[in-house]
Design a protein around this nucleic acid. Sequence first.
DNA 1: AGCAGGGGAGAACGAGCGTTCTCCGCATGG
DNA 2: CCATGCGGAGAACGCTCGTTCTCCCCTGCT
Lengths: 183, 183
Amino acid sequence: MDSALARERALDAAEELFYGRGVQSVGMDDVRGTSGVSLKRLYQLFPAKELLVEAYLERRDARWRGQLAEYAERQVEPEERILAVFDWLGTWFAEPGFRGCAWLNAYGELGATSERVAGQVRAHKRAFREYLGALVAAAGRPDALAGQLFLLAEGAMVTAGVTRSAEPAAEAREAARRLLEAG
Amino acid sequence: MDSALARERALDAAEELFYGRGVQSVGMDDVRGTSGVSLKRLYQLFPAKELLVEAYLERRDARWRGQLAEYAERQVEPEERILAVFDWLGTWFAEPGFRGCAWLNAYGELGATSERVAGQVRAHKRAFREYLGALVAAAGRPDALAGQLFLLAEGAMVTAGVTRSAEPAAEAREAARRLLEAG
DNA sequence: AGCAGGGGAGAACGAGCGTTCTCCGCATGG
DNA sequence: CCATGCGGAGAACGCTCGTTCTCCCCTGCT
């Protein structure tokens, strides 16, 4: 097993475990057991647990935003793209094993103690906010609308996570639709 | 120092420390140091750390909802009361030491490992949702509006926590105002 | 004064876990 | 065939921390 593959396996295991059970309740030994990558290898690839956490969040960030954009951009009309964001949230919330927003969970767990993780969470949320800003600008709407849609999306993520339900996505979509048609 | 006072001191310290630094990074010894209540007393009052955490969340829940209701009910018109909720969020976000929603932080930290804490978070959010529902019903609006306002408020809390800014309250208030005037 | 007991300070205990180390097998190159 | 070194398994180490225990003081009662 070469380094690239070991790295991928380690990140797969880290993502599954950190997302599913929280970062602090997962030990490096659990990551080894799930990934099949030995501790020695793990520490060669990620010299400390915190680096593994950062790599997990970074890889997930790229995938999350990529999938969102891919989904939204199937729509042609700017307004449709905006609403598609909420549809995509709904499919995400309905996935088995959905446990809320990985970044918000990580922030609650580590934000107070790890400035680097807190920074990653802020960067992820800023990127999402800017993506919404771009969609809103493409629709010729004021940027303030993007802020409001962002709050709806964040509220939906948090509520879906806590209540284990996909319903908030539809509620947020409806609110977004009304904000769009009113403005 | 009698038991009631010791209990109060312990909860004061627990709240300050758990909220400010997260539950897991605060030891019982820190609570003892901050509260001045000895470990022996602490364990008489709260036989395990988890019970102290639950008591912290419960006391804070009562205070949080009480203060919100007190603030909102200074307004007479139902619509004004709804908007006052967002004004109150703004004053909360601007308080020194604000670090986001205590329940969402606790959920990110412990939701995956403590079913009791997860239940407290759900109960707190449900109560807030129902409070909004009552305000919305008093305004003669459909309950679906309360769900949308709830998502805005949750999004504002989370975003204010992550970005350390009070601004999301005003954004959410503006969105709420538009949803109110549109419907 | 003598004593019983609650309470405080802090040491001690035990588990969990991040990180490192030891030991061994095995593959590869001379 | 032997030497070398990488990699795996898992023991070991050290620290943190939840929880309990020890020892002692002080108070209040007789």
